[in-house]
Design a protein around this nucleic acid. Structure first.
Lengths: 145, 145
DNA sequence: GAAAACCCTGGAGTCGCTCCAGAGTCAAGT
DNA sequence: ACTTGACTCTGGAGCGACTCCAGGGTTTTC
């Protein structure tokens, strides 16, 4: 299977596949006589696994760990559970801050009564300036962005 | 006010302040005799504004537009309202996908009965492999990560 | 007067891709 | 047989928003 075929089968871009190989996530495939990469079905499976983990927003370094665990099925891999838990924690923190964000943006929007066209003094801008001065806002309740 | 003072006052790192200057978001301050940057209170306000917008996850390029609108208070700025709306849309899409993500990760976690220590065959890994094979999962309901 | 803390510049590194140039290869149509 | 277009290769640069570093100068503090 050539790289484009693999790309189409997994929905991963050609460049990205080569990138994963360079990063050691995808083993180097065999080469055809012309030097083209020749992938086997194991590559397809592994790439689908990587893709799935990326959909869960795991960083590549964590995925490498998971792949290592997969490659050593007989051995204990205490990291797997921890990685998933950490990922859950990350997502939750992010969810919290996104919810606050949405609220803040809606408030911001409400402060502008459709001033966009004529508007010399947009409420949104005023609001942003005022908020920057220290009134209740997302950035003060959440230090880390 | 020297750069560290400004950094402490706003919670923005020194490097980041210099970066904002290089990006044209923060005007070049005066210099002391020794070449040190000498900030005025206008810089503090502007930096707080930038910080607030960043807390709303606006990209720097959008913040530049908002700052431009602030700098031209007499003129109409039809972009402001649109930028906020776009930001809201972005946050909502992201919220949706984060919620699905959390659910998926929790399912994943439940599939492992605390196998981390002894575990030769972790349920999480099995689950990930199975999911990669195309069963219901986040990455199939949400094409873009 | 020495050590610590601060300041400067320019450039590199981070993450996870994405795009590009420049060259080679292959398949389909004329 | 020839041309066109799609595909492949490599190595390297670019993105966003920082963050860190080297190698130097200055100021403050003990």
């Amino acid at each position: 299977m050539r790289i484009k075929t693999l790309a189409d089968a997994t929905g991963v871009e050609v460049d990205t596949i080569r990138y994963y190989e360079k990063q050691g996530l995808l083993p180097e495939p065999a080469r055809q006589d012309n030097g083209y990469r020749d992938y086997a079905s194991t590559h397809l499976e592994r790439l689908a696994f990587i893709r799935h983990c990326r959909a869960l927003e795991m960083p590549l370094v964590d995925i490498r760990t998971l792949l290592g665990a997969l490659d050593a099925p007989g051995e204990p891999h205490p990291d797997v559970d921890r990685l998933v838990q950490e990922q859950i924690d990350k997502v939750r923190v992010r969810l919290q801050s996104m919810r606050a964000l949405e609220k803040q943006l809606l408030l911001l929007q409400a402060s502008c009564g459709g001033c966009s066209d004529q508007g010399t003094d947009c409420g949104i801008l005023k609001e942003l300036v005022a908020a920057a001065h220290g009134e209740a806002c997302v950035c003060h309740s959440h230090a880390s962005i």
